[in-house]
Structure formats: structure tokens, C-alpha cells
């Protein structure tokens, strides 16, 4: 594949990008997931990298079109770990990554379909024993054992981090937009099936799933007399008014405080 051919193959960094099936917010049609596509873009921006795309999940015609969307960014193949419809992809992904560990694992922060809990990167990092960094803005430098990157923080702030490899990095809207997916490479690209046992997600079987309802948003009442005040209100930092900083608290005190807050916010009901 074009992105494997590096000038210095021996020193090339092995990068794996986890890609999932996306869902268009307006029409619900399957597509390449936006954050995952940004993760692929971040991988393609690296010099001297061997980039591998991995998808684990149930394979259908609809999802094939979405996966081909990633191939259209310039790949000859995508590793497809086929799973049953009710499978938990985490063990299969963990096993596959253990068998052939990349130095760097990139993925979107949260999937557009399925549970979309955003927990998968954390669980993967935990089971692999790798560090995880969220909100990648840019990978600045890659060394044999380390990677230097910019992490996106709220309101455009950036934090430079130096991270030991191997590592998991997640990508959200702060990373550069993905390149266009071209029809030709998407059509030609191969889905290379990799066998992994499919283990059912027992927790999911007990859940009741229902369509999300739009929740009312809290109104931000701005009492401003002038345009300047309105601008200041719009541009102001979200103030954590009423918040509380606990230092040197015992786990019990911390849990108590969180529990109280969740009650106040109505997340937990008595």
C-alpha cells in the first residue's frame, strides 16, 4: 500500500488505526466515522509510518460501503476482524493487537454507532497496559521510543506531551479534517479477514435499548445591555460556579461528594 512504502523501512513506525462504521447525523446512512477518519488522517500525516487499518465488528453490505470509505483515503487493504452481531469486540481487538502489536494505536474518541460510550480506547489501553492520550491535535515528532504530540484542550489551548511508545491516542474534532475518500481506491481496496473468536457481550444482552430522546437544554440567560456585554457573555469561559475542589479527601469523602452532586443534578434518583 502507498503508505507502507517508506524511505527507511527498518525505522518505519508501525501504526494501527481502529476504524468503525459511522452514521450520518441527518440521514442515518452509514459512512466512515468522522473521528476515526481524522485518526486515519493523523496517521497518514506521519513520515516513515506503516499504517494499518483495523475494523472489528459484524460485517454487512451496508458496513462494507462505510469501510471502503476509509480505503478510499489511499489504502490497499483493511484488516477486518469479523464478529457476530452480538459480540463484544474488545477481547477480539485486544487479542489481535497482542498478536501483532503496533507501536502506536490511533482511533476516534467515540463511535457513531453501537454503544458509543467512548470507553473502548480506555479499556484497550488498560488491557494492553499502554498509556492513553485523548484529544490529539497534532503529532509533532516520532522517535524510536517516544512520540511528541499536541493535545487539544478547551478553547483552543494546546498542551505538548511526550509519550512513551507503545501508546493509544484518541482523536476528536480538534484534529485536522480527513482527506477526501476517492472512489477508485475505495473500490479496489481489499478487506483482509482476520480470524478471531467472537465472544458475546453478556452485559449488552441485559440492557434495554431505546432511541435517544432529545433532552431539554439548560437555558443560558444572558442579561446584557450592550453588544459588548453579549459578546463577553458568549466568549466567556464556562464558569464552574458552585463547584467544589476537594484536596486530601479520603475515597469515601470523594465518593460522598460525587454522589451528592449526582443527586442534585438529577442523574441519580432516590
Amino acid at each position: 500500500m502507498p503508505h507502507e512504502t517508506t524511505k527507511n523501512a527498518a525505522g518505519a513506525l508501525d501504526v494501527a488505526v481502529l476504524v468503525s462504521i459511522g452514521r450520518h447525523p441527518v440521514t442515518g446512512r452509514t459512512r466512515r466515522a468522522d473521528q476515526d477518519a481524522r485518526a486515519v488522517e493523523a496517521a497518514l500525516a506521519l513520515d516513515h509510518a506503516r499504517v494499518q487499518l483495523i475494523h472489528a465488528g459484524h460485517h454487512e453490505t451496508d458496513s462494507e460501503a462505510a469501510l471502503r470509505g476509509y480505503l478510499g483515503m489511499g489504502f490497499e487493504a483493511l484488516t477486518l476482524i469479523e464478529q457476530a452481531g452480538d459480540a463484544d469486540v474488545l477481547p477480539a481487538l485486544t487479542d489481535a493487537l497482542r498478536e501483532a502489536p503496533p507501536r502506536l494505536l490511533l482511533c476516534g474518541t467515540r463511535a457513531e454507532t453501537g454503544e458509543g460510550s467512548g470507553l473502548l480506547p480506555y479499556l484497550l489501553a488498560e488491557s494492553l497496559g499502554w498509556p492513553i492520550v485523548t484529544g490529539l491535535a497534532e503529532i509533532e515528532r516520532v522517535e524510536p521510543e517516544h512520540v511528541t504530540l499536541l493535545q487539544a484542550l478547551p478553547r483552543g489551548q494546546r498542551r505538548r506531551l511526550r509519550l512513551r511508545l507503545p501508546a493509544v491516542i484518541t482523536v476528536d474534532e480538534a484534529a485536522p479534517a480527513p482527506r477526501q475518500s476517492a472512489f477508485g481506491p475505495a473500490r479496489r481496496g481489499a478487506l483482509a479477514v482476520s480470524e478471531q473468536a467472537s465472544r458475546p457481550d453478556t452485559a449488552l444482552a441485559d440492557w434495554t435499548l431505546e432511541p435517544a430522546r432529545p433532552r431539554p437544554k439548560r437555558l443560558k440567560v444572558v442579561k446584557a445591555a450592550s453588544a459588548r456585554d453579549r459578546f463577553k457573555a458568549a466568549a466567556a469561559k464556562a464558569e464552574g460556579g458552585g463547584g467544589q475542589v476537594l484536596t486530601d479527601a479520603t475515597p469515601e469523602q470523594g465518593a460522598e461528594a460525587i454522589f451528592k452532586l449526582l443527586h442534585e443534578e438529577g442523574v441519580l434518583r432516590r
Partner: peptide
């Protein structure tokens, strides 16, 4: 179709048409 290089808003418009 091969380069995936439609300039400026081209890629966005094509993505919209598809979706």
C-alpha cells in the same frame, strides 16, 4: 475518483450528496 482531490468545498459537497 482516483486522487480524491476535489478542491475547496468540493469534497464536502460530494460527501453531502452521498449522505
Amino acid at each position: 475518483l482516483e486522487h480524491g482531490n476535489t478542491p475547496n468545498k468540493g469534497a464536502e459537497v460530494l460527501d453531502n450528496l452521498i449522505a
